[in-house]
Write a protein that binds this DNA or RNA. Structure first.
Lengths: 147, 147
DNA sequence: ATTGTTGTAACCATATTGGGTACAACAGAC
DNA sequence: GTCTGTTGTACCCAATATGGTTACAACAAT
């Protein structure tokens, strides 16, 4: 099946770069180098993150910087900013089951509540992890792998 | 983004039909009528459910019947039978982040564990709902809407 | 033998994805 | 004011997955 777009992981990657970066200007070019993709892809994703109010991009001169504290951004926030998942639409439900069949007429409402629970459980895990924690773990890993 | 295939909801629909059906033979044609899709789509999905050991289909003569008790089939079982989701691959991770960049080199291992938790939380909800419960709710809804 | 059904293969239109080119708008350096 | 490097978009692309559809051989029961 199709998976959840890697835009999400790329967005987290971008934000992590900004959070761990020294002052050096991080252009879309440089970020693309770390992510291993095209600069335009980075710019597109940054556009979404900008719209969400997480960062700002210096037009013309280049470079991006965070607007919010990384403890105030959860992974769910990033997920939401970057995915075009309508609030309760992780699962596709088949269209127009036959209303003249008892099962067809009622299965959707019965099944949907379970699907919602499943989706919510997933999102709750993301909501519980602030970017700060991920960056912390990342830094730990980085220093341990440097030594 | 892409959603989880409606094959899943169709599969649940099929199994619900078998569970609630009177003895009448349920051909792919009839099921397709309830689901509102093409008989071939139903047959394809039934093929997967058959492979998973949930049901059997009478070749030639037609019709399908359950092989397992509906309390022994969880929604996760159905999900697994019908989706081609590799065990821990709900989320796509961008390929080959740059190993020469500290962030690029380490973000995957750090981020993946969270993604796994999120996916597991979702699947756990599905695992906790046996088909029997869904069919029970369905029957309740049906009789209440009949009155 | 006839009939109705299943299991597959083949094909299609559609949508989404990540990637890529091109270029105008822009801001700073000089 | 000009030059330079960057961003923001608008397009376009190939690859992939989806659900649907046609077609037909295999099959089981009458």
């Amino acid at each position: 099946m199709k998976k959840i777009s890697s835009r999400f992981s790329m967005a987290v990657h971008i934000l992590s770069l900004l959070a761990t970066g020294d002052g050096a200007t991080l252009t879309s070019e440089r970020m693309a180098g770390s992510i291993n993709t095209n600069p335009v892809v980075v710019r597109k994703i940054m556009g979404m993150l900008k719209k969400a109010g997480f960062l700002n991009v210096r037009a013309g001169t280049g470079g991006a910087y965070l607007l919010k504290n990384i403890e105030d951004i959860s992974l769910l926030d990033v997920y939401r900013a970057v995915e075009v998942v309508e609030e309760h639409d992780l699962f596709n439900f088949h269209d127009n089951p036959n209303p003249d069949c008892p099962v067809g007429a009622n299965i959707e409402s019965v099944f949907r509540s379970t699907l919602l629970q499943a989706q919510n459980a997933m999102e709750q895990v993301l909501a519980d992890v602030p970017l700060k924690q991920l960056v912390h773990d990342l830094n730990e890993k980085i220093s341990s792998s440097e030594s």
